[in-house]
Computed example of a mutant assay.
Amino acid sequence: MEELNFKPCSCTSASKPEEKGPVLPVSGKALWAVLGLGLIIWYAVYSQLPGVSDYLTFNLAGLTPGSHLGEAVRFFLYDTPKVLMLLVLAVFGIGIIRSFVTVEWTRKVLAGRKEYVGNVFAALLGVVTPFCSCSAVPLFIGFVTGGVPLGVTFSFLISAPMVNEVALIMLYGLMGWKVAALYFVTGIAIAIIAGWTIGRLHMEKHVEDWVRLATAQNSGADSRMSIEERVVFGLEAVRDIIGKVWLYVVLGIAAGAVIHGYVPEDMMASIMGKDAWWAVPASVVLGIPMYTNAAGVIPIVDALLGKGAALGTVLAFMMSVIALSFPEMVILRRVLKPRLIAVFAGVVGLGILIVGYLFNMVI
């Protein structure tokens, strides 16, 4: 039950303090030349995607424009390379940024702030340091044993899977900067407020006892890396992350293509529209048992919006899939007692409901 999220991490061993960074595969000049050539090729291919997808669908395959099958196939052939290429660029850039952010540095920053300020810092750090299931436990342990307040830690744990670089870049690429910004602001707000609320409940005794005796693993980043080593770190992040999520991306886009081509707009609007009061809570409940991540759910969200589903309802569905999935609750059970997990799910779920209803009212 591995949560294939967006953090290159090593589950087998911790990085040793004396390790400076990744080994350069080529000389520095050659590395920059290859990187520059790669960016030129990336742009050339990306700019041709609309025309190529139309040609493959309607000319080569002979499908009829406007038909159910034709629109579904075109959606799939265009969005699959588009999303994967955006992911490569985003993960590479964020990977370089994350080479500066070590677990020890993060722990010191969070532990040295007032609690409400720590909630804000923790939520923002979660955006660039998303966790997978194998790194969630050592990160949580590292924060708790490092003196980070429990509520601050939860702000990080909420924002890390829900508002990460992959989610934001995919939202931007598929739905524009306004939807991406909206999701960022609401997701960060939920992480900050929910973490602060949990902190006010003083539930430290509901953390498993063994957590306080454990030590954290290192994320692989090192403040002593050269710029070339950080570039290699970013390339390794691309290899590791894209290798884990590409199948989820393809499956998510395939589901979105079916919705885009075959689901009637009237039916989707009646199920996930603004008029049905029960649509938001039903979407949250529907999202909890689903097992996917941002890479898999965002193409589905794009297709649902295109078919007339209300933005608030769709955002609530997306947030519940990413932040409240049942597999994630099972993972957190390794370090949290049931009562604290229930409080976590309840507080986050309430925040998601508020976001859903709010945006259905104002948009």
Rank of each mutant, 00 (worst) to 15 (best):
E19R: 03
G147K: 00
L332T: 07
I41W: 10
Q48N: 04
M318T: 15
A316K: 07
R98W: 07
V73C: 04
F233V: 04
E328M: 02
A136I: 15
A72T: 05
F184R: 10
S325R: 09
V211R: 12
E3M: 12
A303S: 14
I242W: 14
M85Q: 05
A254T: 11
T80P: 00
C11M: 10
H260W: 15
V137F: 08
T80N: 13
I354E: 08
R224S: 12
V166I: 12
A61E: 07
V73H: 05
A61Q: 12
P149C: 08
G36I: 10
S155W: 10
G173E: 02
N5D: 14
V297E: 01
V245I: 15
L139G: 13
L358W: 04
Y183P: 00
V101R: 03
A316R: 03
A123T: 13
V166H: 07
I188N: 10
I288W: 02
E3D: 11
L336Q: 03
R239G: 01
M290N: 03
M170Y: 08
L305S: 11
V52L: 14
A279I: 00
V127P: 07
T215P: 02
L182Q: 04
S320H: 02
S99F: 05
V128A: 14
L350N: 12
L305V: 01
P264L: 08
G306L: 08
S223E: 14
R98I: 11
I169P: 05
V249N: 01
G66L: 09
I271T: 03
G62D: 01
D266F: 09
I300N: 03
T102F: 10
N119P: 06
V179F: 11
S325G: 15
N5H: 15
Y46N: 06
N218W: 09
V250M: 05
C132M: 12
V163L: 09
L311D: 00
V148A: 11
F92H: 08
N5E: 15
A310C: 13
V88W: 00
V245W: 02
V120A: 14
L332Q: 09
F76N: 09
T102A: 07
S155H: 00
P338T: 06
Y46M: 11
I158Q: 10
I190R: 06
L358Q: 02
A276E: 01
I363E: 13
S47K: 05
G220P: 09
V34S: 13
V355H: 00
R107H: 00
L69D: 09
T197G: 07
V91T: 15
G70I: 14
G36K: 01
L174S: 04
I41P: 04
Y183D: 05
A237G: 11
R200W: 04
G252A: 05
V128I: 15
A181H: 02
T12G: 15
I198M: 05
S283Y: 00
S325E: 14
L251E: 10
N5G: 08
G21P: 03
L110M: 14
V211H: 06
Y183F: 13
G28I: 06
W42L: 02
A257R: 01
V101F: 07
N5A: 14
G146R: 12
V355P: 01
V211P: 09
G346T: 10
G199S: 12
L87A: 13
